[in-house]
């Protein structure tokens, strides 16, 4: 079998060394065991140890290796190398770059934290589990699986313009995850928390978030449900 080569254009920037960012052209020969983009990146790093990126589980559950791949956000570990001969890699858009493909996610997590991402139930804890029917539990499907990779929020124009004011799709998905949980008692407070021209309502249903989510989740639908609840309680 002839060697397969992937041609990369990679965003490079080391503030310790570079005056400004640049795009590096570099090619790498794949080994037969290289199946995913992350495999190629690890191979690339074995030749040039200065390339920086985050990675951990390499199976799409930890959310570390989100990046902009040929113009679209995704996880390197879930991106197949099949047919991928030319790859342009950039850090996730809209967040400050720390180095190469590593972005500063402070603002992203700040928004996640702002929705109080934990169950609120002030009744005394029962001795056993709180009961929840399978149907009630089903409401959490498509919500709890979020891996906080930030692909969605950093593909959202509203988040680009107002990262400090708009919660963004990941945070809003988490907000609805708790609203939808029959065990949570803070729906009113959660809606109050989002009652603001920016926090929720800057979502204009552009649906980039749905398009890029590597877990196949639908933040736009969750946001729509929160908006419906807002409307319902206003009338």
């Amino acid at each position: 079998m002839s060697k397969r080569t992937v041609n990369f254009k990679i965003y490079r920037y080391d503030p310790d060394r570079d005056e400004k960012p640049y795009m590096q052209d570099i090619s790498i020969d794949l080994e037969p065991s290289d199946k995913k983009l992350l495999d190629a990146l690890v191979r690339l790093k074995s030749k040039d140890d200065s390339l920086s990126f985050r990675r951990s589980c390499r199976e799409g559950v930890c959310g570390s290796d989100a990046m902009n791949i040929n113009g679209k956000n995704g996880l390197a570990c879930l991106t197949s190398l099949d047919g991928l001969d030319n790859v342009v890699l950039r850090p996730l858009p809209g967040l400050p770059v720390i180095r190469d493909l590593v972005v500063d996610m402070t603002q992203f997590f700040k928004q996640y934290h702002s929705i109080k991402p934990y169950l609120v139930n002030n009744e005394p804890a029962p001795e056993r589990e709180r009961l929840q029917s399978p149907e009630e539990r089903e409401e959490l499907n498509g919500l709890y699986e979020c891996i906080l990779c930030a692909c969605c929020s950093t593909s959202c124009p509203s988040f680009w313009w107002n990262p400090d004011k708009f919660v963004g799709p990941a945070g809003l998905l988490a907000a609805y995850r708790f609203i939808a949980d029959t065990r949570d008692q803070a729906t009113t407070e959660r809606l109050d928390n989002l009652e603001d021209p920016y926090r929720l309502f800057r979502c204009h249903s552009i649906m980039n978030c749905v398009d890029v989510c590597p877990k196949g989740l639908n933040p736009t639908r969750a946001i729509g449900k929160i908006k419906d609840m807002m409307v319902a309680r206003a009338v």
């Binding site: 589990e129 709180r130 029917s133 399978p134 539990r137 709890y144 065990r183």
Partner: peptide
Amino acid sequence: HYGMPFDRTDNG
């Protein structure tokens, strides 16, 4: 109680 979304049996 912390909110872990365990799957449920028919009786919850």
